[in-house]
Amino acid sequence: MQTPVKRPETADIHSSAIVDERARIGENVRIGPWCMVGPHVTLADGVHLHASVIVDGHTTLREGVEVYPFVTIGLAPQDLKYAGEPTFCEIGAGTVLRENVTIHRGTAQGEALTRVGSNCLVMANAHIAHDCLIGDRVIIVNNVVMGGHVEIADDAKVMGSAALHQFVRVGRGAVVGGVCGVEMDVIPYGSVLGNRARLVGLNWIGLKRSGVAPDEMQAMRRAFRELYPRHGGSETVLEARIAAVRTEYGHLPRIAEMLDFMEAPSHRGLTRVARGEGSADTEGA
Rank of each mutant, 00 (worst) to 15 (best):
T3D: 08
P4N: 10
P4G: 09
V5K: 10
P8M: 06
E9F: 05
E9W: 00
D12H: 09
D12G: 05
I13Y: 02
H14S: 02
H14P: 00
S15V: 12
A17H: 11
D20F: 13
D20T: 09
E21N: 03
R22Q: 01
R22W: 09
A23M: 04
I25D: 06
I25H: 02
E27L: 07
V29R: 00
V29E: 03
V29F: 01
R30L: 07
G32D: 05
W34I: 02
W34Q: 10
C35I: 04
M36N: 09
V37D: 08
H40F: 14
L43R: 14
A44Q: 15
G46M: 05
V47S: 00
H48I: 15
H48P: 08
H48E: 13
L49C: 08
D56L: 11
G57W: 14
T59L: 14
E66D: 12
E66N: 08
V67M: 07
V67S: 09
V71H: 08
V71F: 10
T72E: 09
I73K: 06
D79M: 12
A83H: 12
A83T: 15
G84W: 04
G84K: 08
I91Q: 02
G92F: 13
A93C: 03
G94D: 01
E99G: 04
T102F: 03
T102R: 11
T102K: 12
G106I: 13
A108H: 11
